[in-house]
Design a protein around this nucleic acid. Structure first.
Lengths: 235, 235
DNA sequence: CTTTGTAATAGTGGATACACTCATACAGAA
DNA sequence: TTCTGTATGAGTGTATCCACTATTACAAAG
């Protein structure tokens, strides 16, 4: 289930949130595109209000930008922002794998191998869901850390770069190429050395950034609408 | 200005957000306390609606928990959650200081010393604003990393533990004791070794956790209302 | 042809109204 | 007395309405 939400929407607002999130992740709503509450509300057969509240949540997660009196646009990422997200993800996933190390017994390692195998299959099949399998691989490792907030933060980071990753994978990259790197991570975990595993994971995460960035630069994209921070937490 | 928001509220919703956030940080709204939109709306001379949207934002930041049809409560942190937040903060601030290292010229180092001096003064005066000065110290270092999202995340973490920190500092701890540790960080920065500075910062951040946790355990507090993840980002 | 002022329109933020859910208190049955 | 069902009230979620803002198109002046 990777980084998707589970359960059913209890409320209209939640339903709106999920629907919009899905459409941003999948790329249906492109960066820079303006989201009009009324339109989406009609689509989902509800009123504007729950849609607006969904916007709030999305804005807090940085997926959308709300400017007062000027509406809501899907916030693309600049190259710098993508780098930054990968930097953050590298240390967080490094932490996660370090904390997860004590829980990697034989069963966990076997399951980890399964994940890698699934990734390989999805990659070889040229399947578009390699990305999903890749996220599941990372999610499995992070999950073993048993740190709910850490897991949530990492998940949010995966989601933030997902749209960019999708166009990248769709247009050029052969996932198979990326897959071989995963083995390094698995190997490091197998050594049992937590510090080492952390370092390798950091490295592994960071390695993707420049390749994605280069692709986006060539496409001239990713200069869309710079996302902004939640207005709250500024220094 | 530490981790406070700047500028004026452009919208009623923003005003509500700031007001509630302030009251949670200061401890006026205790963990477990229920927040009734109507009441707060009356207090701020506005309607329920912007207050509700403010709740959404606060919920996303983990400061508040919204259960469908059951209202909004201030979410205290369990001991485990406090540890987790410090763990996350340690790697993020470690990253921040590493990235900030190239920008620590003579001027920056001087300003850093100023921050430490201010902290010492506030601590010696038994001032309640030692915490603020301490946050400013960290914020200054993080700010030099020039990573907006990283800075925002760290700020959010500082805010999350702020209520607990306030009761701790108010009841027992002598900030002066904590202050001497800062010098280690400054010293490490002065060496110019980024890896070393990162390690020291990690250590510095983590050191606070057990002391705070022990205090809260003795007080029997911190078992308030466990905060939850944004329903969105689960694995 | 460009610039500036103005009108029309789309869209946003907020208030109010209404329907539904949950919790509490209380009455009656066991 | 204890348990269960019901009624009542507080509070939540959503829809609709209104006032205001911003943007666009267009017209008049330079």
């Amino acid at each position: 289930m990777s980084f998707a939400s589970k359960g059913m929407a209890a409320t209209a607002q939640d339903e709106a949130y999920r629907a919009i999130l899905q459409d941003i992740r999948s790329g249906r709503y492109q960066p820079g595109e303006r989201l009009i509450p009324e339109t989406i509300a009609r689509e989902l057969a509800m009123s504007r209000m729950p849609v607006r509240e969904a916007f709030q949540r999305l804005a807090n997660e940085g997926l959308v930008l709300i400017r007062p009196n000027r509406g809501c646009v899907v916030s693309g990422l600049t190259i710098d922002e993508i780098y930054e997200l990968f930097e953050i993800r590298s240390v967080l996933e490094g932490l996660a794998v370090r904390l997860a190390m004590p829980r990697f017994d034989a069963a966990a390692l076997a399951e980890l191998d399964d994940h890698v195998a699934r990734m390989h299959r999805a990659g070889a099949a040229g399947g578009a869901d390699w990305l999903t399998k890749h996220q599941e691989f990372h999610a499995y490792i992070c999950g073993l850390s048993r740190r709910p907030k850490l897991i949530a933060q990492i998940a949010a980071l995966h989601i933030a770069v997902e749209p960019s990753m999708r166009v990248w994978l769709h247009h050029v990259a052969q996932p198979a190429h990326a897959t071989e790197r995963q083995d390094e991570v698995v190997e490091a975990i197998r050594t049992g050395d937590a510090e080492h595993a952390e370092a390798v994971m950091r490295d592994h995460v960071l390695r993707t950034a420049p390749r994605l960035a280069e692709f986006l630069r060539k496409r001239g994209q990713a200069a869309g609408v710079p996302s902004t921070l939640p207005a709250s937490t500024q220094i």
